[in-house]
Design a protein around this nucleic acid. Structure first.
Lengths: 170, 170
DNA sequence: TGGTATAGCTTGAGACTTCAAGTAATCCAG
DNA sequence: CTGGATTACTTGAAGTCTCAAGCTATACCA
């Protein structure tokens, strides 16, 4: 008897009506929200949401700098994508690359003063956009629940520590 | 006294620690999940997740066809994006364009038999991927809560019916 | 009826992402 | 201490998305 975990060859267990509605709502909400924030930041900060997130990560790191791989991991993106992104941010003068002293293969992404300035200038508007779109609409219980759910999902998609291959390293 | 709704000029109300953790978890979970499903479908069906969603919408429509604008609305994307997407799907032979009989400006996107075949062939694997990544990890209460939360968020970002401009019409 | 505004959709350019392949430095088994 | 595997990161091409501009057809109104 086949294990139930590989549904590939089994009769598929379709989504129930309620599951379908939940899944649809999830897709709608996430695409609308991402779109909304992308537009907001493109307009107010001149970069898409994910680039903004990179600057935030850097701003919170010691000495405002991070190894490329570490930054990619934090942001849950591939190193390739990060390379392109940092190249663009470097052109804007918001990030600078530095050689890593301890590993000659390594690169550090460093937030520049201008990059920091962009962040301080645009952060209030962005926080407010996130509040308006998300937190202000949810009860405290819903916020708590959302946090738990999202942690579970993220955890599940995170590559297992031992030996599994790491998506952002591909 | 300024209304609290325009926080633009006010001292920003930052996110609390818990809100920040929730927001981070949300960003991580949604990017990891989108990535995961994009890869799964690119591998198994030869198209990104959103394109797959378009085929699904068409498959559920009467006569397996939909006006472009309506399809764009259902999928929460701009008409421009849809135009490009349909062009690509047409090249694959999975969708065909037809002139709308009642409105000479209009176009209908029609799912072809091959398009339908791709769907039936790949749907089980996709459903299973969604289950594994999402539903199987959540309790019934969490699933219910997720549905409610996502409906609220989507609702809030949906353009109001009267006079507001419609994002997907831009 | 005629003229202007609007709706429906497409197009092209530039920005962003992905994937596979490439370079260079480090690790490590023997 | 040496050569093959691995790690760190980059690159280029092809695919996708956005934005502004464009075209045609319909709607509206005087």
């Amino acid at each position: 008897m086949e294990p139930m975990t590989t549904a590939r060859t089994q009769a598929p267990r379709w989504l129930s009506d309620e599951e379908q509605r939940t899944w649809q709502a999830y897709l709608h909400a996430t695409t609308l929200l991402e779109d909304h924030l992308d537009r907001q930041l493109q307009r107010d900060a001149g970069m898409p949401h994910i680039y903004y997130g990179l600057l935030v990560q850097l701003s919170e790191a010691p000495r405002r700098r991070l190894r490329m791989t570490e930054l990619a991991m934090n942001a849950k993106i591939t190193r390739s994508r990060l390379s392109h992104a940092i190249a663009r941010l470097e052109k804007n003068g918001w990030v600078r690359r530095e050689d890593c002293p301890s590993d000659k293969r390594g690169q550090l992404a460093c937030l520049t003063d201008e990059g920091y300035e962009v962040l301080t200038r645009t952060a209030p508007g962005h926080v407010s956009a996130v509040r308006q779109a998300l937190f202000d609409r949810l009860s405290p219980e819903q916020q708590k629940s959302l946090g738990e759910i999202m942690r579970i999902v993220a955890e599940g998609l995170q590559p297992k520590e031992a030996g599994a291959d790491l998506p952002w390293l591909r």
